[in-house]
Structures are given as C-alpha cells and as structure tokens.
C-alpha cells in the first residue's frame, strides 16, 4: 500500500509548480500536496477495510451459499431476521448480554471510584505509587491468561479458594460450573482486571480539585468523611457521569475473549452472549447469513445507544464524544 502511494507522488509534483497565476485549488494543492499524499494510503485503508465490509451486510437479507458468493446467493428479505427473533437462542443470548453488562454496571463500575477515593487519601506518595502500579498489572494481561488463572484458582479440586473454604469447613463450590456462581465469577474477573486501571481518570480528576476547597472545609470543621462527600466527590462528578453513560452505550457488547475463556458447556445458559454465539454459529458453524443478521441487529442497536448517549452527555452540559 505504501509503495502505491509513492508512485502516485511522482505524477503531480512537477505539474503543480509551473503556473504563477494558479487557481485557488491549485495553490492549495501545491501547498498541501504532501499532506494529501500521506492521506492516500489512509483513505484506501478505511475504504477497503472499514467501508467495504458494510456492503457485506446485505448477506443478512440473503441466504448465503458458499458456491454462489455474496452477490449470487438468493435474496430472502427479512427471513433471517424472522428466524432470529423467533429463535429461543436469541432471547437467551440477548438476556445474557444485557444481564452481564448490567451486573458489571452495578458491581464493577463503582469499584474504581472507591479505590480512587481511598488512594487519594494516602499521604505517602511512594506507597500510593507502588499500590497503583500493582493494581494496574492485571489490566495488561490477555483474557486467556486471566481466564485460565481464574479457572485454576477457583477449581473445586486443586484451587486455592476452595482449599481456604475447606479449611473453614465449607463444601467445595463449583464456581465455574454453577449457573449461580458463574456470573459472579465473571464480574469478579472484570473487577480484578480493570478496577485498578480504572482509577487513573478519577485520580486525575481528583488531582485537579482546588486544594483551597479542602482548607476551607477543614476550617469550617468538616471531617475527612465530609470533605470527601462535599469536596472530592463533586470534583469527580462529571468524570463519573461521563464514564457511566459511556458504559451504558456499550450495553450490547460483552467482550468475546473474557466470556470465551471463562465459559464452559455447563453454564451455556447464563454465559452465551452475542459475540460468542456469532463466532460459534457463524465462523465455526458456517451459518453466515443468520449470524450476519444478528451482527447487524447488534450494530444498529449499539449505534442508536451511542448516539443517544452522546446526546445525553451534551444535554448534561459536558462536551460530547464528537
């Protein structure tokens, strides 16, 4: 791709420099030609790899057959969607996708806020920095690694967690194979990976709170608790609000890798989400049209959610995402 841009470069350079009384567009071109040339491979990339696949969405309205290709396969109108919406699988994966996101929103979202508030109260900068660095580590691990560690640690026979429970006389718990415990383990793994790293934005917002506010509050006799409540929290309120609505904009996606590494056949009824289902039915099961219809449904709902969220952020008086 790069070399093709280089070839194009040699054509217009000589032509642009000749005329003194050039029209506006030629003056602009001779001024900015290198900038445009830089953008040529960029434009090719976005058109080929980001826009071309959008045409592939027509498959959702066809019955794709490998031998006939995307364009040759017969049109079936909304048949794939009818099949999808009447399938019991659909209700289940949609419910799981929304529920797992909801659990994360309720239980994982507040954790970095609390952690950041606690870190902000530390006096020793060195201790604070060490703790932050330790808490960030899981964020840099792949879900394959984290997922397998979670499974190993929670194993009923050899895992350390059940060994501790056994010590206290509790029967081994099949965390990863129980439909009750699996979502809890899922949320726990989300917290483990992202809570520490999630403090970064909150800590930055706290650092920008005017110290005079704390002094004034202290002079008025406010305790630490009241200072946190009346000074720190209002200082990070807009950060919390934005991150909250942003996360709500992603209600339709659950990351493939996290679920795929943690799930197993015993908990399919609570763990199968849209992304894993599309992979299994589409890539593995070759039901291209059916899963494209599901993917299109997901993309459209996500787009509506994100646009709505952006409107909402702007209505709150914050700067929007675009």
């Amino acid at each position: 791709m790069e070399s093709s841009a280089g070839h194009r470069a040699s054509i217009p350079i000589g032509a642009a420099g000749l005329d003194a009384q050039k029209p506006l567009w030629r003056r602009r071109w001779s001024r900015d030609k290198y900038l445009y040339l830089m953008l040529v491979p960029v434009a090719i990339y976005f058109i080929l790899f980001k826009y071309a696949p959008l045409f592939g969405e027509v498959m959702a309205f066809k019955n794709y057959r490998l031998s006939e290709g995307i364009w040759g396969s017969p049109w079936v109108g909304l048949e794939q969607f009818r099949k999808l919406f009447t399938s019991p699988d659909f209700v289940q994966i949609l419910r799981n996708t929304l529920l797992l996101n909801l659990y994360n929103l309720l239980f994982a979202f507040p954790v970095p806020i609390v952690l950041a508030l606690m870190l902000n109260e530390l006096r020793s900068e060195v201790y604070k920095r060490v703790l932050q660095n330790l808490l960030y580590i899981p964020h840099f691990m792949s879900w394959i690694v984290l997922g397998s560690i979670v499974i190993a640690v929670l194993s009923p026979s050899t895992g350390i967690v059940n060994a501790v429970l056994k010590f206290f006389g509790v029967e081994p718990i099949y965390f990863m194979a129980s439909t009750f415990w699996w979502p809890i383990s899922f949320v726990g793994s989300s917290i483990w990976r992202d809570a520490g790293f999630g403090t970064i934005l909150y800590l930055a917002a706290m650092a920008s709170v005017n110290p005079q506010l704390y002094e004034a509050a202290a002079i008025d006799g406010a305790s630490r608790w009241r200072q946190i409540w009346h000074v720190t929290l209002p200082g990070i309120r807009s950060t919390i609000a934005i991150l909250l609505v942003l996360q709500m904009g992603h209600m339709m996606d659950v990351g493939f890798e996290q679920v795929y590494t943690l799930q197993n056949s015993a908990v399919g009824s609570v763990s199968e989400v849209i992304s894993t289902y599309v992979y299994k039915r589409g890539i593995v099961g070759l039901q291209y049209s059916y899963t494209t219809a599901l993917g299109l449904f997901q993309s459209v709902v996500s787009l509506i959610l994100v646009v709505a969220v952006n409107r909402f952020i702007r209505a709150m008086g914050e700067r929007g995402l675009w």
Binding site: L54, G56, V278, Y288, G295, Q298, S302
Partner: peptide, 10 residues
C-alpha cells in the same frame, strides 16, 4: 460507531 460485523469482515 458502526462496523461491518464479524462475518462480512471474515
């Protein structure tokens, strides 16, 4: 904001 989805990309 809007992507082609897994199968068309594949």
């Amino acid at each position: 904001l809007f992507g082609g989805g897994l199968i068309p990309n594949f």
